[in-house]
Simulated assay, not measured.
Amino acid sequence: MCDIARPLIKNKLINLQVTMLCLAAVALARPDKPAPAGYGYAPPTPAYAPPQPSYSAPQPSYSAPQPSYEKKEEGMPFDFEYAVRDDYKGLDFDHDSNSDGKVVNGQYRVLLPDGRTQIVTYTADHHNGYQAEVTYEGEAQYPEPQPYKPAPSYSAPAPSYSAPAPTYEQPKPSYGVPH
């Protein structure tokens, strides 16, 4: 036999042995064969059982809420006013309001992006609720947007020196007369 054939035959024998062992394991682990009886004792039965409730559900001890919309508390009198105007960002709005404790009267104004001013005049009380009247001042405008060009925040510096006076003389020849 040559030296090359021996390892091939040896590998085939090992593969055959492994295959035989696998077939024997499958034959021993057949599902139709009953499981072994164990070590001669019965499996344990659970000794714990959840306890049964020994109480009854509590009876509700509340009553239905009474409607509170019949009784209105009188408000506190107040008077306030504020305004904001920022021309750089295009903001302009204000609000003023006053109350005698029963009725609130007020007005607010807002500059809209289209150039109009929206004015809301309102009255609010417990009997009529919030009543508002909305009006507009001005005409809606939609101009073409212009590119932003910031104005310079500085100017060119003024010179703080004078022009230099010339300090040179006409050069003298440095060569001699040729021989």
Rank of each mutant, 00 (worst) to 15 (best):
168 Y>A: 12
104 V>M: 02
38 G>A: 06
97 S>Y: 08
43 P>L: 15
152 P>I: 06
49 A>Q: 12
61 S>L: 12
103 V>L: 02
86 D>R: 11
65 P>G: 12
131 Q>H: 01
31 P>F: 11
105 N>G: 06
177 V>L: 14
142 Y>K: 00
82 Y>E: 03
20 M>A: 14
18 V>Q: 13
97 S>A: 15
54 S>P: 03
16 L>H: 11
41 Y>P: 03
28 L>M: 14
143 P>Y: 02
58 P>N: 09
122 Y>G: 11
51 P>E: 00
143 P>L: 05
158 A>D: 05
165 A>R: 13
106 G>Q: 04
57 A>T: 14
136 Y>R: 01
158 A>G: 02
91 L>S: 08
123 T>V: 05
34 P>D: 12
164 P>M: 02
117 T>C: 06
60 P>S: 10
105 N>Y: 00
24 A>N: 07
99 S>F: 09
175 Y>K: 01
88 Y>H: 13
35 A>S: 02
1 M>K: 12
101 G>T: 07
91 L>G: 06
135 T>M: 02
76 M>Q: 15
60 P>H: 08
41 Y>G: 07
65 P>H: 10
66 Q>I: 13
83 A>D: 00
118 Q>N: 04
8 L>K: 10
64 A>D: 15
81 E>L: 10
50 P>L: 08
161 Y>T: 08
172 K>W: 12
174 S>E: 05
152 P>F: 06
74 E>S: 11
160 S>T: 09
155 S>D: 15
134 V>H: 04
52 Q>W: 01
131 Q>I: 12
144 E>W: 03
131 Q>A: 10
130 Y>M: 10
53 P>L: 05
150 P>V: 02
13 L>I: 12
146 Q>H: 07
113 P>K: 11
101 G>A: 10
1 M>Q: 08
68 S>H: 11
164 P>N: 06
37 A>R: 10
110 V>F: 07
35 A>G: 11
41 Y>W: 13
38 G>I: 03
114 D>K: 01
125 D>T: 09
179 H>N: 14
87 D>E: 13
16 L>N: 04
69 Y>P: 00
7 P>V: 04
34 P>T: 10
44 P>K: 11
49 A>S: 14
154 Y>K: 06
8 L>N: 06
119 I>G: 05
26 V>Q: 08
160 S>Q: 10
11 N>Q: 15
151 A>T: 14
19 T>A: 15
71 K>L: 07
127 H>P: 00
88 Y>N: 04
160 S>H: 04
178 P>D: 13
18 V>F: 06
160 S>V: 05
94 D>Y: 08
46 P>I: 11
120 V>D: 01
116 R>E: 01
151 A>M: 08
13 L>E: 14
80 F>N: 04
65 P>R: 00
